[in-house]
């Protein structure tokens, strides 16, 4: 089987998965989650008005028709309007994407680079005190709740020491930068632990391979071996790991965006959750699911391309 038909088959597989995602969303939010009209109409709702609204929202239509709506929205991206804000959901997502990206992209990029550098560094001193200390610090960092980091970071670094903006956001480069600095740092602290641990294993895996021994016997310095040979080979698992994390950036960082008032997709999602705004929840779920599936296809295909050892099944 060649790479094209492999790619094609993997892409074809996206369809049943999207159908499945739509089904789960439909079951959760249309069938069992209950009637939202009371929420939407507020404290002065009357029974007849609720019935009218149910009709208006299409909640009195047959289930099959409602399911098809979910499926259709997954392919057309036409998610309708938010129940609570009455805004076009697609427009909301477009508007929220940029603030989210200005936070998540640099944070993701910087934390990945930092983690790779640290992991190479500790591999250089593998088994020694530095290595063990770094691994311990990583594990320790992972053992604290993300909420605690955010609360403390905002209070101590932004307010008490006055190093950063407390919260807020300005659109446009470079005005947003002061506002995303602290969230980026907290993001890095949150992700550096697991990342370093993973990359370190990958690098160590390579270091014990035969070709490294050969290189060493040829008298190459440890530094050259690490950066030229080991890193090159470790790139495959590293890239896989990085790629598969990208779709999760779509929802942004829910807590970070909320605490730092960044008007991104994360805060849109959190707001929708708090307000039982089902169309928005559904749209965000569908979008991130599709991104996840497409990226896993992409990762698999890339994997085949760069690593001939992987057999096409």
């Amino acid at each position: 089987m060649n790479i094209y038909s492999y790619t094609f088959r993997r892409l074809l597989y996206v369809i049943p998965v999207v159908l499945g995602v739509s089904l789960i969303i439909f079951v959760l939010f249309n069938l069992v989650a209950g009637d939202p009209t009371a929420i939407l109409l507020g404290k002065h709702a009357s029974a007849s008005q609720m019935a009218e609204l149910r009709h208006e929202l299409g909640l009195d239509r047959p289930w099959l028709a409602q399911y098809f709506d979910v499926v259709r929205s997954a392919f057309t991206f036409d998610f309708g309007r938010s129940w609570s804000t009455k805004q076009e959901i697609f427009e909301m997502i477009k508007a929220g994407a940029i603030p989210s990206l200005t936070l998540s992209f640099p944070a993701f990029f910087l934390s990945t680079v930092l983690a790779i550098i640290v992991s190479l560094f500790v591999s250089f001193y593998r088994g020694g005190v530095v290595d063990r200390l770094v691994v311990f610090v990583c594990v320790a960092l992972m053992s604290i709740s993300s909420l605690a980091y955010i609360l403390f970071g905002q209070w101590f670094l932004a307010y008490y020491l006055g190093l950063f903006e407390i919260s807020g956001y300005e659109s446009g480069f470079p005005y947003f930068i002061p506002y995303v600095l602290l969230p980026i740092i907290i993001w890095m602290v949150l992700s550096v632990g697991p990342d370093v641990r993973f990359y370190r294993t990958v690098v160590l895996d390579e270091i014990y391979q035969d070709y490294v021994r050969t290189a060493r016997s040829k008298g190459l310095s440890e530094r050259v071996i690490l950066f030229k040979h080991v890193l090159k080979n470790a790139m495959i698992p590293i890239i896989t790991y990085v790629l598969i994390k990208i779709p999760f950036l779509i929802l942004g960082a829910l807590l970070l965006e909320s605490f730092f008032s960044i008007p991104g997709l994360g805060s849109i999602t959190l707001n929708a959750i708090n307000g039982s705004d089902f169309p928005v929840i559904k749209a965000m779920t569908i979008l991130s699911s599709i991104a996840y599936i497409l990226f896993s296809v992409f990762t698999d295909v890339m994997y085949c391309l760069v690593d001939p050892r992987v057999r096409l099944k």
Binding site: L251, L254, I273, S289
Partner: peptide, 10 residues
């Protein structure tokens, strides 16, 4: 696969 593609928080 379907299940894991849905964000956990949702």
């Amino acid at each position: 696969t379907t299940f894991s593609s849905i964000p956990g928080i949702m």
